[in-house]
Design a protein around this nucleic acid. Sequence first.
DNA 1: ACCAACCGGATGATTTCTCTCCGCTTAGCG
DNA 2: CGCTAAGCGGAGAGAAATCATCCGGTTGGT
Lengths: 210, 210
Amino acid sequence: MRADAARNRERILVAARDLVAERGPGVPLDEVARHAGVGVATLYRRYPDRTALLEAVVLHCLQLTTQAARRARAEADDPWQALTRYLREALELRVSAVIPAVLGVVDLGGGELERARTDSAEAVEALVDEAHAAGCLAEDVTFADIGTMLVRIARPLLGPLTEETKHALARRHLELFLRALTPEGGAAGSALPEPALTRHDLHDLTEEER
Amino acid sequence: MRADAARNRERILVAARDLVAERGPGVPLDEVARHAGVGVATLYRRYPDRTALLEAVVLHCLQLTTQAARRARAEADDPWQALTRYLREALELRVSAVIPAVLGVVDLGGGELERARTDSAEAVEALVDEAHAAGCLAEDVTFADIGTMLVRIARPLLGPLTEETKHALARRHLELFLRALTPEGGAAGSALPEPALTRHDLHDLTEEER
DNA sequence: ACCAACCGGATGATTTCTCTCCGCTTAGCG
DNA sequence: CGCTAAGCGGAGAGAAATCATCCGGTTGGT
């Protein structure tokens, strides 16, 4: 592949990730192309239709999260450090905002995508489980709580703020959220209402709704 | 106004609120009408165009928040109860998800809307200030932090979950978030990164970006 | 029971989005 | 440095979605 082609591929993927995170899976492809600084034809040449593009985006994202989770687990000093490091990295990757957006539109059944999704979820769940086991994560906080709160924090705010402001706020809010995850936080607060979803609950629910 | 007309007005407002919160200010008006269980003509008769509808929605929402905030302040036993009660009510009203979505599209300059917005912000700020003063809210958590986190929590999650599940999760996540707001939570966690925005910062920023 | 206000589906105009064609540019190589 | 094939981007036709209105039928209120 020629160098400029590779560069454009990357740019398209990034632009699509950001725009899908912000505006949902229905963003006009013209706009993705413009935002990526390439012509529409370039986009359509590489990804024949919207589904192909979305699949590529979500696969890319899932691989990055898996990597980040495994690296955090391997390199951090303790389970709490590992978990928080992963969450910070995942926020930068904007990964969490994209996946659920696409989940309702593309069918990741059976193939490479399904596997990538499981890998990613398992890698993250390992972080959560170890933090639980080490007693540095409030007991009643589940995998799904952390995952979906990350989704909420990663999703760009609506309204007329600059991208930088939005992102800076997201980082701040992640730090704020981390305070809620400590065992002390759990002790201070009242009981959490249902549903306390596990990874499998979440998976099953999304399947049913399809 | 005839009884059925009043009923339909309410239904349209509710449908518009929900759909705008979920899909942004560009939702097809046909769909709003369908979701409200009325014909398109009924919608267009009452609100000549999209802007009129959005303005009505946001005005309605702002009035409800203001009320909720004042009531919480007046009736709750202490500043912490007041603040949390307001947040829980505001979540049910789904108010927070709508306002920023509309902010980028309609111009609320000068008129009734601008005033409603100020009223609402002041009422909420009073809750925050009193909680700070009473020492039951972590010092480094600002008005904007609480407001925008409520936006994040109130915005319906993307993806194929049922409405009920999404809303139940939102309630759970609000409770989880409350743990981060206590002074103990603040002491346990690390410092929050910038920007620590006040109400006025937030206001100014949204004006600039227009 | 009357009637005026109101309702809602069908419909044409208009905008928006998708996807392809084609001439120009540029990376990679000898 | 010049060649060449891969790659690029914008214009534009065709399709789809959305807007906004009209009119026959219905219903609430007196």
